[in-house]
Design a protein around this nucleic acid. Structure first.
Lengths: 233, 233
DNA sequence: CTAATAGTGTCTCTTAGACACTATAAA
DNA sequence: TTTATAGTGTCTAAGAGACACTATTAG
């Protein structure tokens, strides 16, 4: 069987997620080339075979070039494919998602903008499906892992971390249970400083232990979420 | 940005899994064309843009053509990519994995053969990595879902199902706990017949409820496995 | 002082695991 | 009868959720 078949287009698209004002946001970039020049889409681009060692490398390059983000948490989501998802022809997009603290973005050549995931923006191509898959993956991993730590700044309080978990999961968690399980992970270490942001009793600051950067840690059990918000279908 | 870049090769590879003699096996097919003609590899092939509506459709077509298997449980695993994973050039393979009962295979044009996943066969390309990812995915989903039911024949006893879970997880499970959790799923229904295979007290036969085919059901909690075998690194 | 948030002690209820028990067949 | 497997009853220990309590700051 020779490859006499036309080759599909191969692109990489990245869903970049962060937390702004306690709400999960994703990044759109303004397209600089046709089709749909000037419209907002997920950061994406072609795979460059001479330059990229893998599609993960493509994702890293695209993220840096289009969103000014370097080495965040970056994980392959899945491949999306079909004859009509891209007007240029039968295409495969290897989708990735990335998590960054809200303050870890650098200036970018093209305009970029954060949108709340809860708002149902009309998106080009099948980008809405990709976005939903990314958010679903984050939620599902949040239930039983330390993944949301990658949305945090360098140092943070346990209450701040709990708020992040609650935002992502869309519900409220019990303080005692939350802290028990975070402690069990042995993932965070106190930093010998304090913060007084709330205005009242200062809270201990924590940071990820160096070992944490080797991979995400999994909790033994799923968090139960009290049925409140649970937004985004 | 024009697509002046050379397009990567796009293929689909499928890890087909089944249970033979209580052990997890995967299928290799003899290659009918260069490179490596005559050697054993995972069933795979090019995406046919004129014919396939998605890479999932490609996987179905390849599975039917090369392994004689129709509509099993089939799920995308992940994309593998790089300049040297295929000698023909920079390539992307969208990998899928599929589960079938041991008896649900039809005759095939090219020779196929089942191998135990525990045996460390040397495989071509990066197929060993793909196989390991498939087995890891199956294990991880088995912990908290009804996925192994797709490895079962039409009708089966609860003890047989438990043996399958134990094979996949590589350990032994408590009978009482296992049955409690399977019951909670409300996924199986009794068939009013009995079987006497063991030679002693006949066991009730069960089958998947019709609703089960809409998707796999997730258990609330992870199965604890007593540390025994846990084979395959 | 009060208010507000950080952090802890501890009770209860659920449930997984263990395991003994009964049930039903073959030989 | 014995033996082997199917299936159930039930105890116990661990742990999640609930929530009240103490601790420490601002005003």
């Amino acid at each position: 069987m020779k490859s006499s078949y036309p080759r599909p287009l191969v692109t990489v698209d990245v869903v970049l997620l962060t937390l702004l004002g306690g709400e999960l946001h994703f990044l759109l970039a303004r397209r600089e080339s046709p089709p749909h020049e000037g419209e907002w889409t997920l950061p994406g681009g072609w795979v460059h075979p001479e330059e990229d060692d893998s599609t993960l490398a493509s994702a890293r390059r695209i993220l840096q070039a289009k969103a000014g983000v370097i080495s965040p948490y970056l994980e392959q989501l899945q491949a999306f494919s079909g004859p009509s998802r891209d007007s240029r022809g039968w295409s495969v997009s290897i989708a990735y998602y990335a998590l960054v603290p809200a303050d870890l973005t650098a200036p970018t050549p093209a305009p970029v903008k954060w949108f709340p995931v809860a708002d149902h923006q009309p998106l080009l191509f099948d980008h809405k499906e990709i976005l939903q898959a990314a958010v679903a993956r984050l939620r599902s991993k949040t239930m039983y892992s330390s993944l949301p730590c990658y949305l945090m700044p360098e140092q943070f309080t346990l209450t701040q971390l709990q708020r992040v978990y609650e935002s992502v999961l869309g519900g409220s968690l019990d303080k005692r249970s939350f802290r028990r399980r975070i402690e069990e992970l042995e993932l965070l270490q106190e930093v010998p400083g304090q913060v007084a942001i709330g205005g009242h009793r200062p809270a201990q600051l924590f940071q990820l232990m160096p070992s944490a950067y080797e991979g995400i840690t999994f909790l033994g059990r799923v968090f139960d979420v009290t049925p409140s918000a649970r937004a985004l279908g």
